[in-house]
């Protein structure tokens, strides 16, 4: 099992998932027409990671835009990480720009519905 990385495009985010350090990153734009298709390979990779997770898993999400179908996929990613919280110190860091109330609100919404800690982090730039 290797790391999972994907370069960003104008409609899809950068994905950087390091299996050894447990440092995961989703950043940029997540507005694909078919989010399920886009995130499917990542879900498969995560299933493998869950078998032998790093002692610490930190998922940093720093999105400029995401569509509603991506939000559903993000919840699926969070749900997968919930499964390893007994074996790995799991945390989500949700970045938002200070003036971006919608992105802050989204972070707060995710925080309410997931069972792993989510920190809301103000960022200067994307």
């Amino acid at each position: 099992m290797g790391n999972y990385t994907l370069k960003p495009t104008p409609k899809t985010p950068k994905l950087s998932f390091d299996k050894d350090s447990g440092e995961f990153q989703i950043s940029g734009r997540s507005i694909p027409e078919n989010s399920i298709e886009f995130y499917r390979p990542l879900m498969g990779w995560l299933d493998d990671y869950l078998k032998k997770p790093a002692s610490k898993t930190v998922l940093t999400i720093n999105l400029e835009y995401f569509n509603t179908s991506s939000s559903k996929c993000l919840v699926e990613v969070f749900r997968k990480l919930e499964n390893i919280r007994e074996r790995s110190d799991v945390k989500v860091r949700w970045h938002y720009e200070e003036e971006d109330e919608d992105m802050l609100e989204s972070g707060e919404d995710f925080k309410k519905i997931i069972k792993i800690p989510l920190d809301l982090v103000v960022s200067d730039s994307y």
Binding site: E33, I36, T68, S70, K72, C73, V75, E105, D109, I113
Partner: peptide, 26 residues
């Protein structure tokens, strides 16, 4: 609206394109 959005996000099934009917709510 926010509560409904959260509810669907948490429990709703995704459609083929992944939307779960969240578009109009958003």
């Amino acid at each position: 609206l926010r509560e409904l959005y959260r509810g669907i996000l948490s429990y709703g099934e995704a459609s083929e394109s992944g939307g779960a009917g969240l578009g109009f709510i958003d």
